[in-house]
């Protein structure tokens, strides 16, 4: 039986790793339940994040409220396609891709899949690595709304979507962290006489 934090191996049945003090579990039986719970919370928080405005911009002549997608479209209209693409990728493509990837991993851990385990582990690593980068949009809103405070000329204030979007990112990060990637590999013993390690 192995410690997931420090990779030390212990005899079956030991409760705590004596090297780093983490709790030991051969497999966390509730892993997938936790994954789905955080996943659902993340998806629910993501919906209002797209409906409500992320930013409200007040200038001398106008006052506009922008949602995530609306903001990106606006920027593209001004010709900055690169920035529009960054925003769309960071706040639409990555979150949606993450929801799909985690769901796929969780389902395939239970049912098995034709996709090789090595590829799925790779997918898991990508999800873990990329998850934090969705916070970029929240930071952009934070920077903009503290920087652009020029009394009547222009001011930017955060909208409710910033809040739900941050929640959604946090929930999906927790969802990815509760997934036990060893579940992917357990299938390699399926079909042979398998003793639980």
């Amino acid at each position: 039986m192995a410690c997931r934090r420090c990779a030390r191996v212990w005899p079956m049945g030991q409760e705590r790793c004596s090297r780093c003090g983490s709790r030991l579990e051969s497999r966390d039986p509730a892993s997938l339940q936790k994954v789905w719970a955080w996943w659902v919370a993340g998806v629910i928080a993501y919906i209002p994040a797209n409906i409500y405005p992320m930013l409200s911009t007040n200038t001398l002549v106008s006052s506009t409220e922008n949602t995530i997608v609306g903001g990106a479209v606006e920027i593209a209209k001004y010709g900055s396609y690169g920035v529009a693409a960054i925003i769309l990728i960071a706040s639409v493509l990555i979150p949606v891709g993450k929801f799909l990837a985690i769901a796929f991993l969780a389902i395939s851990a239970r049912r098995g899949s034709s996709v090789p385990a090595r590829k799925r582990t790779h997918l898991y690593e990508i999800v873990e690595f990329i998850g934090r980068w969705s916070m970029i949009d929240v930071f952009v809103v934070a920077i903009l709304s503290s920087l652009v405070q020029l009394s009547v000329v222009a001011s930017i204030r955060p909208g409710p979507a910033a809040f739900t979007f941050a929640l959604s990112v946090i929930f999906t990060m927790l969802s990815a962290q509760s997934f036990d990637p060893r579940l992917i590999w357990d299938a390699r013993f399926r079909g042979t006489k398998r003793t639980r390690r």
Partner: peptide, 20 residues
């Protein structure tokens, strides 16, 4: 480790700069 996001904030600055 996953919750330390200083580098993401830095890229966020770049995006914010281009926006305004």
């Amino acid at each position: 480790k996953p919750w330390a996001m200083a580098e993401i904030f830095a890229i966020g600055c770049a995006v914010a700069l281009v926006k305004v």
